[in-house]
Design a protein around this nucleic acid. Structure first.
Lengths: 247, 247
DNA sequence: CGTCCTATTGAAATTCTTCAACACTCGTGG
DNA sequence: CCACGAGTGTTGAAGAATTTCAATAGGACG
């Protein structure tokens, strides 16, 4: 810890300008890199912006570049032969995106909102990993966290009612998006990064059921909705209770 | 690769006797250790046998030891306040069990069958990890595989019908248990490691629905069942088709 | 202004669960 | 040796939750 902060203070001027204000350098994987490594990586990085709906990665496709998400929300999903779809994860800045040590992706990655990523070639990251155990540790930690999240969501998918599922989704978003307004213990307001059909695919429901449950939560005063996408939660604890005790 | 097999050949006599025939040394995490490290770890390992139903790890409990599963099947599950339960993963030999870098477990681990594990103190593993990047890599790989499995299962939980769920479960077991009889492309026979209530908790269904769907698969000739636990699959491809196309 | 996309709402249909009864196995103890 | 109870699994009928089908509404855009 001491060495890390010292390093940052002393070498701030050594790191690439573009990284200076980058969130991935603090909470993301770049935080595991030395200024030298960061400079090296930076020679190959490319920032890219994608519009909502753009497919970033398709299942079975060979992956040549990894990326850090800088802005926006990415949805990871699986598709069945007959078109049924399940969203298996959401990724927010500054998450690392890509499946290390495997040529092909098991999931489809789509931009759920407009997204900005910082991409770099697979080979460069893998070289950095081989020389820096710290980086693999960071990736390992993220994988374990995603595993915990996936398992938490399995409970939601398998055992919760439609009402509890929708409440759980709203609570998840409320916890992950930087709320635009947040007074401690006060109301929370945020934009839903997903449209109804995506929410349905995330929850294993139909859009109609999602819509009905949102209406129900609205009518019971747990949430307020504006323009279909803006949600206000007057009492976050009440929403949290709705995640387990159907109402 | 060359160095690894050479190491194994030359030093076979150096590794602890107990490890010689251990599956975890090949496919499990111990495969990432040198004979010296294996010897060091072995000073702290303890083999233990648990009966079916024994709780190996409870949620929120401080974990002091990790383990390798040597025999049997372990179920990982989550519990809701009102008793609803969801199995979020199954682990087979020679999987590593435990949540690295975290004091508390997020899940409950129970012996689904009689289970034999090789346990060792958390601290010893973590010391080995810090001196051997190769070991962390192995753990990382297992975490990524479990993540892929969890996501695959999310698709099953969220988007498959009861019939497809049960077929998917049977297919999963058929793929993971060493089948007692297996002729290429011929019939496969295996013992179900879970009782009906566990299967239900794995699939997000009730035991009655599981029972009915098994009956349906039996009557349509996709499987044969003996003694409730022994399953014969005459045509594995037919079972695989039943995982996506309900019948 | 018409069209596409998104979202909501109602009614009917379906799937799954709940409740209830019963069957089988296994071990224990009379 | 048989009766008994606990644990496990199956089956039927009624009920509830969710989906499906269908109609409607609003906003964005050409």
């Amino acid at each position: 810890m001491a060495t890390e902060s010292a390093r940052k203070d002393i070498h701030t001027s050594d790191i690439p300008a573009i990284c200076k204000s980058c969130e991935a350098r603090h909470r993301g994987i770049c935080g595991a890199l030395t200024p030298e490594q960061l400079t090296k990586l930076n020679r190959f990085t490319k920032q890219q912006r994608y519009e909502s709906g753009h497919e970033l990665l398709s299942a079975g496709e060979d992956v040549h570049r990894y990326s850090n998400i800088l802005r926006g929300v990415v949805k990871l999903s699986k598709l069945m032969a007959d078109g049924r779809q399940q969203i298996v994860g959401l990724q927010f800045a500054p998450d690392f995106m890509g499946r290390p040590f495997r040529a092909q992706s098991e999931v489809i990655a789509d931009a759920a909102t407009d997204v900005t990523v910082c991409t770099f070639p697979k080979a460069v990251l893998e070289e950095l990993v081989s020389e820096s155990p710290n980086l693999e540790h960071r990736l390992h930690e993220q994988a374990l966290e995603e595993l915990d999240e996936a398992r938490e969501w399995m409970l939601t998918l398998g055992r919760k009612s439609a009402g509890e599922k929708v409440a759980s989704f709203l609570f998840l978003i409320a916890s992950n998006i930087d709320p635009e307004i947040e007074t401690d213990e006060g109301p929370v307001m945020f934009e839903l990064p997903l449209k109804r059909s995506d929410i349905a695919d995330f929850l294993g429901l139909t859009i109609e059921t999602v819509s009905r449950q949102i209406t129900k939560l609205r009518k019971s005063g747990v949430i307020q909705v504006e323009n279909n996408r803006t949600v206000i939660v007057p009492d976050l604890e009440r929403l949290e209770r709705a995640c387990e005790i159907d109402g």
